[in-house]
């Protein structure tokens, strides 16, 4: 089985977010970048398929040179080979199109992307790839078992779960639940040494089409001071929620 994991390179969850160039661009200065958490769950599941069933695991990122440290980390965790499509990501569509063109020339059985990236929160790339390449798609995947071409998967939906059967080739939107947090691997010294020997191949993009672009960013306004209510005056809280906030 050949697996491709799409890796988005995102600011760490604790990062303070700032913008530059007249608030039109995300300020990458002083930001620690990590593997998008949803992608890391997917990558870990892929490494299990490698360890238990001999799968080959490739990773791909659409991004400039700066993302290579993140890709090296995926190699240290256990991916076999990394690809970087050398272009600054512009919108979800162009990223999906780049990855879709890349897949077209290969024969991956399983493609894993995160349900959503924690930077732009598009939640669009995996669905778009599935439609561009006409392959089965399961979003918010929290369970995945594969035997031959047969797939049994579990999807989280609002208020519950669905058990789904389908076939390869398949793309999933991965998230926590596919593996647990405690299953995530921290690269060890040996992994890091081995990653240096592994291939990281830079691919030049084909023609790029975009369908949307960022114009500017704004940070939410500082919140007004909290109204503190004494714990012996809960009637006041109920009153405020009813009359002022009108939420109960």
């Amino acid at each position: 089985m050949k697996i491709l994991v799409c890796i988005s390179h995102v600011p760490d969850t604790t990062s303070k977010i700032n913008f530059t160039e007249n608030s039109s661009k995300f300020d990458k200065n002083n930001v620690q970048f990590v593997i998008n958490p949803n992608d890391e769950f997917g990558l870990t599941r892929a490494i299990w398929f490698k360890e238990k069933a001999g799968a080959i695991v490739h990773v791909i990122n659409v991004g400039l040179h700066e993302t290579e440290a993140t890709l090296r980390k995926t190699l240290a965790i256990g991916a076999d080979k990394a690809f970087r499509i050398n272009i600054e990501p512009m919108d979800g569509y162009s990223v999906a199109k780049c990855i879709s063109d890349f897949i077209n020339e290969k024969d991956y059985d399983l493609i894993i992307a995160g349900r959503e990236s924690i930077d732009y929160n598009g939640g669009m790339v995996p669905g778009m790839i599935s439609a561009l390449n006409n392959i089965n798609f399961i979003d918010k995947c929290v369970g995945l078992e594969i035997e031959g071409k047969k797939v049994r998967a579990c999807r989280e939906c609002d208020g519950g779960k669905e058990n789904i059967s389908t076939t390869l080739p398949l793309i999933i939107g991965s998230q926590k639940g596919l593996v647990e947090e405690s299953d995530l691997k921290i690269p060890n010294m040996r992994g890091i040494m081995m990653a240096r020997q592994k291939e990281l191949i830079v691919v030049e993009p084909g023609q790029i089409d975009i369908k949307s672009k960022s114009v500017n960013f704004e940070k939410p306004k500082e919140k007004a001071e909290v109204k503190l209510i004494s714990s012996d005056n809960l009637d006041e809280l109920i009153n405020l929620l009813h009359k002022e906030a009108k939420v109960i």
Partner: peptide, 8 residues
């Protein structure tokens, strides 16, 4: 953050 996006 809030982002303003232009549709092309």
């Amino acid at each position: 953050a809030y982002e303003t996006v232009e549709v092309i």
